[in-house]
Design a protein around this nucleic acid. Structure first.
Lengths: 336, 336
DNA sequence: CCCGCTCCTCGAACCGGTTCGACGGAAGTT
DNA sequence: AACTTCCGTCGAACCGGTTCGAGGAGCGGG
């Protein structure tokens, strides 16, 4: 069922069929109909590989996502879903690439073998060799997150500095003086993940500004780690009355730890952080948090990438999002 | 950076380069080294589209997943991750395809345009036209879930009937007599989703067998729906003392509803169901549940698909999994 | 010395599209 | 009636690989 077969049955040349389909040159109405009839009858669809080979575009974008080692968070899921959906509206497919330990193999494959027209990179590090690599190749890509030197590159990111600071101010306004910070896992922090770094930064600075006494922790991406992390927090400073978390996956464990320690949320202890709304609403009491707009970010990333693909000379664009804190039920004034 | 360029610089023909790389014909050690040197120097990687066009294989598998309309569950996320990872070990890439309202467009694209060598289908319905379509085309695919007539087709599924029954027996053994069932959303049930149907079936039969008084509910895939569903349960029969849920995303809402109704889990009310372990462990108290082995299923699905691709004439194979119930902390003997 | 065999390499055809230059015929000009 | 213009179509080349049949070089055997 190739274009030659269609041409033969319609009694025209292959190029005429091609033009009839692409509309890049005029084709008489009569011929077009004849061709269309044959196509409908045979259910012809052009071969994607052949098309890609001929015109150099695969109509596919790569989504480079973190390895399973660090467990996926709900936010990542929502993000992936929205990317796929947004890409579909532009008639792009999405190819997943695990960027793991051998980030090279799979990543190089995407680029070197020209499997994709452009890429979206998740979980950016402040110093990200992948970004430098892509920039050096001038390969169309959009980063989710802002590296240390984001100027002149394409990205959509969350203002983690501002969000963490907003959490601090919210707690400080409620009268909390001793606050803990629960970050992503230590290995991610050490690897230089931007959300972990900028979040920590924003938290620390804002806390200093407000004169709070703080302790910061890293915590594995699962409930069990959240539980032990909370135990450490109360052990290190039993007078702690609130915490800020960037760690969505640990949230359940943190809550459990508080329950086990006999601290009632929000009466005895306030919890807030940066978490996708769906997950903030799953826990009881519902989490007062800066809602990560994962879906919006996915859509924006695709928008930017498509624009970059369609207009290669557009100057770099980006979106820095800073969603407000949604007041729910997990924070309350500190009891004096 | 194409094969012709490599050939020119190495002073050999294009075909020799091809054979040196594929090893499908002997090439002298000397020539091979000469070619390899040029390749290393120029960083050549063969173009995937050209290769696919020539040999008819894309080295890509399609993952057809449900539309975003019904929100993704954690289990789906784990599953997608494990599929991508398992595929990578076989040197396959994964192309995502949202099979949504216009299941046709995106789905047809995958197949008709030959973008993938095979496909994995999630969220199977008992009567799934996609499966029939694929079977008619003899297109290599593996279903996640078991349709009404699974014989002669490839799939890996969860024995929802047995799992739901196991939950019932667990509760009955604990002395519960009035039990509610929280299913996936009504629209999915009506669409014929197999997990919803078989789960309901297993629940109903086992409950009849044990002489329990039951009520069954459908519930949206989010916390808010879980909350209202629980309110309905207690309103319809305040004497209910336990529930079984297939609805992972509603779990948080169910718990909240119980807390609001003043029912303590597990003292006053037992909760169990079929949920991925990661999520069962995030709630407090941790959920006693049949753990959905999402990662294992992803790996198995890829294994089957690859086998089917490598040996097209293998008779159909499948895996029916029935993980045991993990006892955690959400069930207890009924108080008389 | 010639033949046949093995081993390696080459050229050409092919996969299924896109695109460019050319060409034939109808319509419009003078 | 001859000349240009424009429209629609065609053939050929190309994208970058793979694969097949053929052929040359080197070798041992007769």
């Amino acid at each position: 069922m190739n274009i030659g077969e269609i041409a033969k049955r319609a009694g025209v040349s292959r190029s005429t069929v091609s033009y009839a389909l692409s509309g890049k040159r005029p084709v008489s109405g009569e011929t077009r109909q004849k061709i269309q009839r044959v196509i409908d009858e045979l259910g012809y669809q052009p071969n994607a590989s052949a098309r890609a080979l001929a015109n150099g575009r695969t109509d596919t974008i790569g989504l480079v996502f973190p390895p399973a080692g660090n467990h996926y968070t709900g936010m990542q899921l929502d993000f992936i879903g929205s990317v796929v959906e947004a890409a579909a509206t532009y008639d792009y497919d999405v190819l997943l690439s695990p960027s793991g330990v051998d980030s090279d193999r799979s990543f190089q494959r995407l680029l070197g073998e020209r499997r994709v027209d452009g890429a979206i990179l998740m979980e950016i590090r402040l110093d990200d060799d992948r970004l430098e690599h892509l920039a050096a190749l001038d390969f169309p890509s959009v980063a989710i997150g802002r590296s240390a030197h984001p100027d002149g590159s394409w990205w959509v990111g969350l203002d983690h500095t501002a969000l963490a600071a907003a959490c601090v101010h919210h707690l400080a306004d409620l009268g909390h003086r001793r606050v803990a910070f629960v970050n992503r896992p230590e290995q991610l922090l050490r690897a230089g993940y931007e959300s972990a770094h900028r979040g920590l930064d924003g938290f620390t600075k804002a806390a200093a500004e407000r004169g709070l006494t703080v302790r910061t922790y890293t915590c594995g991406d699962d409930a069990a780690s959240g539980l032990t992390c909370l135990e450490r927090i109360l052990h290190d400073d039993p007078a702690t009355t609130a915490l800020v978390t960037l760690n969505e996956a640990a949230l359940g464990g943190l809550y459990r730890g508080l329950a086990q320690a006999g601290r009632h949320v929000p009466r005895d202890f306030s919890v807030t952080g940066v978490v996708a709304s769906r997950w903030a609403e799953t826990v009881t009491p519902q989490l007062t948090a800066a809602d990560v707009p994962a879906e919006q970010m996915g859509r924006l990333a695709v928008d930017l990438l498509v624009q970059r693909l369609d207009h290669p000379d557009t100057p770099a664009r980006n979106h820095l999002l800073a969603p407000p804190i949604s007041l729910r039920a997990s924070t309350a004034p500190a009891t004096p």
